[in-house]
Design a protein around this nucleic acid. Structure first.
Lengths: 141, 141
DNA sequence: TATCAAGTTGACGTATAGGTAAACGTGCGC
DNA sequence: GCGCACGTTTACCTATACGTCAACTTGATA
């Protein structure tokens, strides 16, 4: 289990570049308790596992979770006694997020509809300034 | 054109309550140059027109424009020489916003798909811990 | 007149995810 | 010994849209 013949060790800058973020970001995540790389003296050294963990973190971000949510989940995942609960918690979180996103999509659709309505009225107005500004759609209050 | 027989005058708190925001919000909008109510002494007095303007502002917000964008547009709208250009500018802005929103909706859909994929894999895993964690969908990079 | 409600300004706080700068340490090659 | 490329920490800055608090005036009321 010695890693010396297959190092997979990264410095901050290396791993950051590798993951497409900045070194600042990795240090920031460490501040926030998301990762804890080993150190040689004062210098951070990231292992292959750290890289995997970071990849998970970035994925969580892409899926719209906050750093805090991600951290909580990772903690739960690491320290949890059984797998089951964690997976179920993950399921719940995912479902929750999906619900939020579906709500957001509805809002977006409504907004697009309202904007299109405004555009239509504006165009009619431009074509014939006599016709009164008249939207077909009621704005939500 | 005297308003004395039909005052329609509001204090901050009144108008705020009327519009469903706080007084702080109205003062904040004034700071940002979105409205400039008259004053009696030091006290703000909002007219009917102010109310209309505020309603426009809130609508803009609901449609996802920033206060700065709203302010710029209102300025353009008030000080502009002809109507045409303003309306055309409005059309352009609306189209732009729609494009942004449609992009957002695509992102949301993709994210939902990925979340559902994860949920599916997790459920299979829960049902049969032997089957390897296997997502059907590739994550976007 | 004492007090209370409502108005005013100014300043600082909140949340998020880092960016940016300052000041400093450290190994390496020449 | 010098400079360079890295690394480190601390601390303040960014944007957005207000919330919250403090301190102060002013007009109306009991």
């Amino acid at each position: 289990m010695d890693a010396s013949n297959h190092p997979e060790l990264y410095s901050v800058t290396e791993l950051a570049a590798d993951l497409g973020v900045t070194a600042r970001t990795l240090r920031f995540y460490e501040d926030k308790g998301l990762i804890e790389p080993r150190r040689i003296g004062n210098t951070r050294v990231y292992t292959h596992r750290d890289r995997g963990r970071l990849a998970l973190i970035l994925r969580g971000k892409r899926l719209g979770f906050s750093l805090r949510e991600i951290r909580d989940w990772l903690e739960l995942y690491e320290a949890g006694p059984g797998q089951r609960r964690q997976l179920e918690a993950l399921l719940a979180k995912a479902a929750e997020r999906i619900a939020t996103l579906e709500q957001q999509r509805q809002d977006i659709d409504a907004t697009i509809a309202e904007l299109k309505d405004i555009m239509g009225a504006t165009k009619r107005w431009l074509a014939d300034p006599n016709c009164k500004p008249q939207h077909t759609r009621k704005a939500r209050q």
